[in-house]
Simulated assay, not measured.
Amino acid sequence: MNEVNFVQASNLKEKPDVSKIGFGTHFTDHMFEMTYTEDKGWHNPQIIPFSDITISPANATIHYGQAIFEGMKAFRQGDKVVIFRPLDHLNRLNNSARILDIPQVDVELVHTALKKLIEIEKAWVPAQRGQSLYIRPFIYADDGFLGVSVGKSYKLYIILSPVAAYYSHGFSPVKIMVEDTYVRATQGGLGEAKTPANYAASLHAGLVAHKKGYDQTLWLDGVERKYIEEVGSMNILFKINGEIVTPELDGSILSGITRRTVLQVAKEWGYPVSERRISIDEVKDAYKNGTLEEVFGSGTAAVISPVGVLGYKGEDMVINDGKIGPFAQKMFDYVTGVQCGAEKDIHNFTEVVAEV
């Protein structure tokens, strides 16, 4: 295994008041960097001072978009710092790499480097419940070549950003618009990869939804515009007649780590759980006959995001009287409790990476 070298920053930054900053606006003193070339593979893993990246104007990623990323969080638990499901995230990074034809990384090496980086930057991990240190690994093709081809050189970075609780005004339901005009992804495409292209494809529809008074967009399948897929920044789940239902992983939606957590825990709590195709018409029918009990999203940023209004073709479905559903509340309390140490972690979801 390559040794992870460390270059100390000469000047350390003043740490911000996390409660007063936006998401991803401040970054720690150091970052992880590793390089890939055809002759050496992945090499030169090092932790270096946080700084701007210099690239060629002909950089392949700028022109052709061969890039992937991940998002995870570190939390303070008293005198310990933990990361929530880090290996699941790093293995998903490799799955995205497979789809984008990016060379696989040594998960053990990157895992070791991540722990070393958190150890160095542990003072940046906020102490208040709901606050965390956001972890952003990303890989991009580094070739300076204007030709449409798979890259031959790559860079991997991990940067860290202290973030406040996702819900600045409290844990409250959001309004989501079902999108039936624009398409984000299709089977056989990039849908299940965590790649910038998927987020770029969602921007315009998101702006349209905002102009209509909604917070986010709920995507339908790209072929029939009938089956529910995911929200722009999270997976979607429904509680219908006591059952937790979520779209199956068919290659066009992201395999969410929080989604995985919710389904596992829901089964253990005794709820019937179904991963299957679910149409917007089925959801409308459940709403009309009173069996649509809750709708909520799941993701790293918000953990659980209850949906109070679901808009489709100009009509709004008001879910659970626009209030947080009991299941969503219970799951939010449980997962955030595990993350902050208030709940016992019987599943080993969290990994201790530093002592404060």
Rank of each mutant, 00 (worst) to 15 (best):
S168E: 01
S132Q: 05
Y157A: 08
Y134L: 07
P86E: 03
L190K: 03
G130E: 09
V110S: 05
V174L: 04
F145K: 15
K175A: 13
A97N: 13
L146E: 10
S168I: 01
L100V: 04
D142V: 02
V178N: 00
S153D: 06
A123P: 13
A113T: 15
Y182A: 11
G170W: 11
Y182D: 13
H111R: 13
A127P: 00
Q104W: 07
P173L: 03
K116T: 08
T181M: 11
V183C: 07
E121Y: 08
K194Y: 12
H169L: 01
I99G: 10
I99D: 12
R92M: 14
Y140F: 08
Y134M: 04
V174C: 02
W124D: 04
V174I: 10
T112G: 09
L87M: 04
R98E: 07
G144K: 05
V110L: 09
S172P: 01
V105T: 11
R98V: 03
V148H: 06
V163I: 00
P86R: 00
N94W: 09
R136K: 05
A193M: 09
I118Q: 01
G144Y: 10
H169V: 02
Q128M: 11
T181D: 15
G144R: 06
I99M: 13
R184F: 12
F171L: 00
Q131L: 00
R184P: 07
G147W: 04
E119Y: 06
F171Q: 00
V107N: 05
A165Q: 00
G130R: 08
W124G: 03
I118V: 07
K115I: 01
N91G: 12
T112S: 12
S168Y: 01
Y167V: 07
A127R: 06
K116Y: 02
Y167W: 15
Y166N: 02
D106C: 14
L190T: 12
T112Y: 09
R92T: 14
P137G: 07
N95M: 13
L87Q: 11
V107T: 06
E179Y: 02
Q131H: 01
G191W: 01
R85M: 05
D106Y: 14
I158W: 01
V183M: 08
I159N: 15
K194F: 12
R184S: 09
M177W: 04
L146A: 04
D101M: 10
N94E: 14
A113K: 15
R184A: 08
D143I: 03
H111Y: 14
L100I: 08
R129T: 13
E192P: 06
K152Y: 06
Q128N: 14
Q187I: 14
T186I: 14
Y154I: 13
A164T: 08
V107E: 11
V174H: 02
Q128P: 11
T181L: 07
L90N: 12
E119L: 07
I120P: 06
Y157L: 14
L146T: 04
Y167T: 04
F84V: 05
G130S: 04
K152R: 08
Y134K: 12
T186K: 15
L160F: 03
P162H: 05
K175I: 07
E121I: 05
S132P: 00
V125G: 10
G188L: 02
G191R: 03
K155V: 11
